[in-house]
Write a protein that binds this DNA or RNA. Structure first.
Lengths: 232, 232
DNA sequence: TAAATAGTGTCTATCAGACAGTATTAT
DNA sequence: ATAATACTGTCTGATAGACACTATTTA
């Protein structure tokens, strides 16, 4: 089938940055490109928007098809990237989305991409070569995530439904790349209103058992915010 | 000229929200639509992106062509809007931008639109009908502006190069819709590091003359932020 | 026992907000 | 003089961060 237009042809794609924690490292979901351009390079999952779907639906569909990653609840729109030179195949404007999922889901496979994989964000940004302008998109997503931890409950999205205060602290420490004072963090986060105790306790390694918490549904705004300067 | 494609046709447009203060009211720049759809309704200035320009260049060009508004320095990308039903003419994804300009520039005319005009944001949002999904875009831009006042020097963009602390306070009061304590505001804002005194004083009406300030170039981040809860 | 983690108490410096007080002008 | 605006001083309550202390477990 061929389409015609009296205006220049633009293509619209979506790309998704999905972040999680693997072994105390922030990792992003990437796929190997199986065709030119950038064949063999890592790329963010994404693809062309179809005529009758919203941009968000397109991002979800591409994530399902290329990575089959579970746990994607909220997708947040990041930005549109539309430099004329960003894709050698033509004029392609991409709308980028980001999501955060709990640690460790299996992602290999999916029909479109030969291999989807979690890779540390630091390596993707500093050492490896990402296709197109995906390095910029990833960097923007990471920065957005860092600031979202200050004023929203996004940190809980890195964790399973039940978690301890220490689990949550590790999320902040990894994402912000800073050590936090355990005592002060505990007081602040339990008083911020976005997590509530389940009543249960868990024991992991030596030390006093920790209370188990869950995210309070709907409590997504944090004020006052958790300041990023709570360093040790 | 006719273009052909084997993929469905998408069009990409840009829309711009330009905000300013007129008579103590936040106003947005809108144009009357001269053709269907939504003929005669107010719309945000914008139009189709051309093949060889960036999205930001397209936004600037459309602003020049449709409104000839001066004073647009920084354009900040807001979001992409791509609902399949948002435009009856076809599948059009629009990338929205926002800018803030000093009060009072003349804008009537321009070649494309019969009349560009400043209209109060409250009326556009609450009473009048904006074309397409421009009401949502405008609402998003206003909310973004409100939060940008907390942690950036954006408020100075509403003012001319030289201004008083009272001028700046009026910007915050109008945008946030709240009264601020003059004394506390003065201390906070002069200590925040993003404005500096020129040495001159001005007299407007009764009262002690006010010192004149200017924006410190490059000082765009505010920390600690000016909290929005500095109400009286 | 020592070591490790969980959680609480407490002190201090800082800061937001309330509000009073001083300075300088127009009318 | 009076009113109005531009600042500046001061008090109070809240909070961030440092750090000590208690509680509960493993090894």
């Amino acid at each position: 089938m061929t389409y015609t237009s009296e205006y220049p042809i633009f293509y619209v794609t979506v790309d998704a940055v999905v972040l999680t924690l693997v072994h105390e490292q922030m990792c992003a979901l990437v796929v190997r490109r199986g065709s030119e351009p950038y064949k063999g390079a890592w790329a963010l999952p994404g693809g062309f928007v179809e005529p009758d779907e919203t941009l968000e639906q397109a991002a979800r569909r591409e994530l399902d098809e290329e990575t089959a990653v579970p746990g994607v609840t909220r997708l947040e729109q990041l930005a549109a990237y539309g430099d004329p030179e960003r894709d050698p195949r033509g004029r392609i404007v991409s709308v980028a989305w980001m999501a955060v999922v709990p640690s460790g889901p299996k992602v290999e496979g999916g029909s479109d991409a030969s291999s989807a994989q979690w890779r540390p964000v630091t390596r993707l940004l500093d050492e490896e070569h990402l296709a197109f302008d995906h390095r910029q998109i990833l960097a923007d997503a990471v920065e957005r995530t860092r600031s979202r931890l200050e004023c929203t409950s996004l940190a809980t999205a890195f964790l399973d439904e039940e978690f301890t205060v220490a689990d949550l602290r590790r999320v902040y420490e990894v994402v912000w790349g800073a050590q936090l004072d355990p005592g002060n963090f505990h007081r602040k986060v339990t008083g911020a209103g976005f997590i509530e105790p389940t009543g249960a306790n868990v024991q992991r390694g030596p030390g006093r058992p920790a209370a188990v918490y869950r995210h309070v549904p709907g409590a997504d705004e944090l004020n006052p915010p958790l300041t990023r300067s709570a360093l040790r």
